[in-house]
Design a protein around this nucleic acid. Structure first.
Length: 826
RNA sequence: GCGGGCGUGGCGGAACUGGCAGACGCGCUGGACUUAGGAUCCAGUGGGAGCAUUCCCUUGGAGGUUCAAAUCCUCUCGCCCGCACCA
């Protein structure tokens, strides 16, 4: 008898699947479609365990659902633009396109070696002109709709990457890619108006019950809506001007003792112009603007304010309050102006103390203590009743928010408003290896979009990259110099490329019609395949990619190109892969690669372990001995099939169906039920696999229990066959081989998923636990659905229970059918 | 500070709506087969007491609800993640 040789088996079947084009997907309106998608990778050059995990999860689903007769689409592609290609190109003196192509080729081989069932006819590469052509097209669509715009602003700059970053790409003040401290620069840059979609991006999270709660919360926090009011303060010396301020606490309006403007606020200059304070204030403004966001917004940073010499008028009580400029006020949030209510806001309190500004209590707590300017030691930010607030005195503060706003609204001095933390998406990148922004600047005509018919604006590939200069399109005169599409005169191209997150914001649509040459995607194809039914990927994209992709989908929905307005129906955020309690990294020397696992044990073993070790959404600790255990299990399966086919083929199989057979069938149908539920409803692949292990153990036990050569051929054969089918999504190569060994026709992956027979799960005898006062005191075996009185009788007749109940009064009896009897006695 | 999550054997992890805690796997112990085993097979394996039938304890900790709690409630400790001068 041969033993399990993973390499031989895996190579054999991978070759056959490729030859037979087994995983091609086509539209078929007679079947229910199912779109399984794993986040496509950046082609860094080699797969790591995180990749192996996400692909293993996706592939189990894809294979399972095919067997459940869904029309499954399971595509794969490459998020191929990005900085590492440029860096590698400089280091190795190769062209980024070549470097990327080589990596893709290698990684694709690795993926195939894992036995993942991709439809490679749908492969996309975001750096290919026939892809980025449509990324550019989508940019132009947004441009035409006013969603893409260019503006001068203070942006995040990463010196190491030599480019700007979107807010989402700054983590705790550091670059998300290289952890360099992000600086501030004033640059003219392209933005997408994602803030226009903030409310819908927030609201529609409710339509996503299949998303993890924590991801939805992260997005919710990121969008950061706050409710409040916009309030206008008139300027004392310029009665026609006003300062608009946003507050979440209009109920504290009577407590305003000063106003603070952001240094960038457009009114700062006119307020001080020509006054003695001009110099001082404008110097401060210039200094503050140079500070990095992290310095300026960190909690430790001192709050600095400067008096402008001007005053504003409180709309409710006509009081004059001084106007200051403060470093802690951000232009990008709300209106860039804050009303200072020191008694009821921590920051304002601190600020007022520092600059000896008056503090006025206007909310009193309900617990009886009375706050006053003299006694207050910290801001009181909780609810209470209004005080010192004219006609609102005594009003509940929560009520006051509404009443004060209504009062202002009636007088045209303010209105209800929600404001958002999220800011527009900065998409310009000062780098070479990206999709060029399709814009031309003409001295005569201004900013001119490249006509659709001229797309793609191709990236020049004949480039010289060197370590001395940052790779940028601005260095290539042939690229930069062009003709204006409108007047035909000399013009220059935009030299920034797009953020790569643009390319990944719509790739799942391109998969539905990867060769479409008249649009980014065919609306019928997208109509059939979209939405992605199950999306799988790392939690690190909870905000970035997932928010951007939702935004794009909504824009395309509004443009009438999509029928869905959410791209991903269900989302699985898979956990990370660790080893020895730490993230795998070269420096820690704890790296295990998919390649070495495939080589040593085979892809089936690696897949099985990675799915068995932990539920998919939890972090996983890699354990070499655990891998061996999974390999051992697959060997056991192989040996079982190999041995049993011998028995099946020869003289075995004469035995009648008896209790052993019934038990084996119970195991089988129990396993079918559990594996089906675990895959489909719970994504608990670890318990699905353990159910298959139990089934295999039962088959061994059966063979041991019956005399050799005296097993029931029919039952054993059926059990083996179904066991192999259950195993197929997890260990696709071994299952295929075993299927062949069992003498079955065709591919195991084309079989219908077995249904379990509830009758087979029935047992005629059950063990019932007898509890006395909630403690297990015995067990009895009785016929199924045994009535309570009979149960009691049986229980009492057992020596022990009888003894324990002797002389006791029975207070109560609780029966759980076929499970337990609890006798409460005294 | 705000928001969220997680604490179960030596380890990874099971336990659907409260109903036998510890499935499955790893590791460990003993045995079988072997020249040998780090191969394979069989048996055992939460802790403690006892020759034993058996008993007691055990899901981070303390209370509570209940006939019955890993599961529900209150408090508390520890770890992890996200956001954070957002007005």
């Amino acid at each position: 008898m041969t033993t399990y040789n993973a390499t031989r088996i895996e190579e054999k079947w991978q070759k056959l699947w490729e030859e037979q084009d087994s995983y091609r997907s086509q539209r078929d309106s007679s079947k229910t479609k199912y779109y399984v998608l794993e986040m496509f990778p950046y082609p860094s050059g080699k797969l790591h365990m995180g990749h192996m995990r996400v692909y293993s999860i996706g592939d189990v689903l894809a294979r399972y659902l095919r067997m459940r007769d869904y029309n499954v689409i399971h595509p794969m592609g490459w998020d191929a633009f990005g900085l590492p290609a440029e860096n590698a190109a400089i280091e190795n003196n190769v062209n980024p396109a070549e470097w990327t192509a080589r990596n893709i080729e290698h990684m694709k081989k690795q993926q195939n070696r894992l036995g993942v069932s991709y439809d490679w006819h749908r492969e996309v590469n975001t750096s290919a002109p026939d892809y980025y052509r449509w990324s550019q097209w989508l940019f132009l669509l947004m441009y035409k709709q006013g969603l893409a715009y260019k503006k001068q602003s203070n942006v995040n700059w990463c010196e190491t990457c030599a480019t700007v970053l979107a807010n989402e790409q700054v983590e705790k003040g550091l670059c998300w890619r290289c952890s360099t401290v992000v600086e501030n620069r004033d640059l003219e840059q392209w933005f997408l108006r994602i803030t226009d979609y903030a409310q819908r991006l927030l609201n529609d999270l409710d339509q996503l019950p299949g998303w993890p709660e924590r991801v939805k919360l992260m997005q919710q926090n990121w969008i950061g809506r706050s409710e409040g009011a916009d309030i206008a303060f008139q300027l004392k010396d310029f009665p026609e001007e006003e300062i608009r301020t946003f507050t979440t606490r209009p109920d504290t309006l009577f407590g305003v003792t000063y106003m603070v403007l952001a240094p960038e606020h457009p009114l700062v200059k006119p307020l001080v112009e020509g006054t003695e304070r001009e110099q001082e204030v404008m110097d401060f403004v210039a200094r503050t603007r140079q500070e990095s966001e992290i310095d300026r917004t960190s909690e430790e940073a001192p709050k600095i304010g400067l008096f402008t010499g001007r005053s504003a008028i409180n709309p409710v009580n006509r009081e004059e309050v001084p106007i200051l400029v403060g470093n802690y006020v951000l232009m990008a949030y709300g209106t860039g102006a804050v009303m200072g209510v020191p008694a009821h806001d921590h920051r304002d309190f601190e600020f007022a103390k520092k600059y000896s500004l008056p503090i006025r209590v206007v909310i009193q707590p309900r617990d009886g203590q009375e706050l006053s300017e003299e006694t207050i030691t910290e801001a009181y930010v909780d609810e209470g009743y209004m005080f010192n607030s004219g006609l609102f005195n005594g009003t509940d503060s929560r009520e006051g928010i509404k009443k004060v706003t209504e009062y202002l609204e009636a007088r045209d001095l303010g209105q209800f408003r929600g404001t958002y933390r999220i800011r527009d998406w900065l998409i310009s990148r000062q780098r070479y290896w990206g999709a060029p922004i399709p814009i031309i600047y003409c001295d005569q005509c201004g900013t001119v979009p490249v006509p659709e018919s001229d797309l793609p604006v191709e990236l020049p590939l004949e480039v010289e990259l060197s370590g001395n200069q940052v790779p940028s399109l601005a260095h290539y005169d042939d690229f930069v110099n062009t003709k204006c599409p409108e007047c035909g005169g000399a013009a220059t191209r935009e030299t920034d490329t797009m953020d790569t997150f643009i390319c990944s914001s719509w790739y799942f649509l391109r998969f539905t019609s990867p060769n479409c040459d008249y649009a980014p995607f065919d609306t019928d194809d997208a109509g059939y395949w979209m939405p992605v039914d199950q999306y799988i990927g790392g939690i690190e994209h909870a905000i970035l990619h997932l928010l951007y992709a939702r935004f794009f989908t909504k824009v395309l929905y509004d443009a009438g190109m999509l029928k869905v307005n959410e791209p991903f129906k269900r989302l699985l955020a898979q956990g990370m892969v660790y080893k020895d309690g730490a993230k795998m990294s070269k420096s820690k020397g704890n790296v295990v690669t998919p390649d070495e696992i495939v080589e040593r044990f085979g892809a089936d073993t690696g897949r099985l372990f990675i799915l068995f070790a932990s539920p998919p959404e939890k972090d996983l600790d890699w354990n070499d001995q655990g891998v061996e255990g999974c390999h051992r299990f697959l060997r056991r399966v192989y040996r079982l099939v190999a041995e049993s086919t011998g028995e099946i083929g020869v003289e075995a199989g004469t035995a009648e169906k008896g209790e052993h057979e019934a038990e084996l069938q119970r195991s089988l149908h129990g396993a079918i039920k559990k594996v089906s539920v675990d895959i489909e409803e719970r994504f608990n692949f670890n318990t699905a696999i353990s159910a298959i292990m139990e089934l295999v153990n039962s088959i061994y036990a059966y063979r041991q229990a019956v005399e050799k050569d005296n097993c029931n051929r029919e039952v054993l054969e059926e059990t083996l066959e179904k066991m192999v089918i259950l195993l197929a999504p997890f260990a696709p190569h071994l299952a295929e081989e075993a299927w062949e060994m069992l003498g079955r026709e065709g591919s195991v992956h084309r079989q219908h998923w077995p249904a379990y027979d509830p009758d087979m799960l029935e047992v005629d005898q059950v063990e019932v636990v007898i509890q006395i006062n909630g403690k297990v005191r015995g067990r009895i075996t009785v016929p199924t659905d045994c009535p309570e009185d009979r149960l009691l009788e049986e229980a009492r007749s057992s020596d022990r229970i009888g003894e324990l109940l002797d002389g006791k009064e029975i207070v109560k009896i609780i029966t759980v059918p076929n499970k337990l009897v609890n006798i409460v006695s005294r």
